[in-house]
Simulated assay, not measured.
Amino acid sequence: MRRTRRRVLACALPAVAAAVMLLTSGCGSGAAGVGPHGAGHGPAATPADAANAMPSEQLTVDQLAAEVGCTPTSPIKGADFRQANCKASGTNLILLDFDTAEGQRAWVDLSKDYGGVYLVGNRWTLSGNDRDYMLALQTRLGGALEQGSNHGQ
């Protein structure tokens, strides 16, 4: 178990770095210095909220891209996940599918430190900055909405 967690985290770091670059590219563009993760985004969801969310089917990166209507970059394969990026409705998205629920939870928990909004489904995750857009996706795809840290922005 420990070795698997270490391997997942080691493989997740490049994905998190890519997520940080996408998620922070709009920082500072909000009104009065409020970044995209600032006030007005509501409370952060917890893993308990994820367990209570409406059920969602297991989707691949390609299926997620088709659902949101974007063309994904070539997926990057990690030890426990595949990741691609795309832009839909003016929102940069990170699309992920996972081999295990444990790997997914480790990735989401680590990534939330960098801000953003996460739609967490059955071994798939979408990440972006536009909470309203992510809420609209949630009604279509299911899953639980989780908010990353705002770091005082």
Rank of each mutant, 00 (worst) to 15 (best):
T4D: 07
T4A: 10
R7T: 11
L9I: 13
C11M: 08
C11I: 03
L13C: 07
A15P: 08
A17D: 10
T24E: 04
S25W: 01
S25G: 02
S25M: 08
G26I: 11
C27F: 04
G28H: 00
S29Q: 13
S29P: 13
V34H: 00
G35S: 06
P36K: 02
G40F: 01
G40Y: 00
H41N: 09
H41F: 04
P43F: 02
A44H: 01
A45S: 14
T46Q: 06
T46W: 03
P47R: 02
A48S: 05
D49G: 05
A50R: 09
A50M: 13
A51E: 08
N52D: 03
N52V: 05
A53N: 01
A53S: 09
A53W: 00
Q58F: 08
L59Y: 04
L59F: 11
T60D: 05
T60F: 07
D62V: 10
D62L: 12
Q63K: 09
E67T: 13
G69T: 08
G69M: 10
C70L: 09
P72I: 04
S74H: 12
P75V: 07
P75Y: 03
K77S: 13
G78H: 06
A79S: 11
D80G: 14
N85R: 08
A88S: 12
N92D: 15
I94C: 12
L96S: 14
D97W: 13
T100H: 13
T100V: 13
T100D: 14
A101C: 11
E102A: 15
Q104Y: 01
Q104K: 10
Q104L: 10
R105N: 15
R105D: 14
A106I: 15
W107E: 15
D109R: 12
L110C: 10
L110D: 14
D113S: 14
G116W: 07
V117M: 09
Y118R: 07
V120I: 10
N122W: 02
W124I: 00
W124M: 00
T125Y: 01
L126I: 14
S127I: 03
G128H: 04
G128S: 11
R131M: 07
Y133A: 04
M134R: 10
M134I: 04
L137V: 01
T139E: 12
T139I: 06
L141D: 02
L141E: 01
L141N: 02
G142P: 01
G143S: 04
L145H: 00
S149K: 14
H151C: 15
G152E: 13
Q153L: 05
Q153E: 11
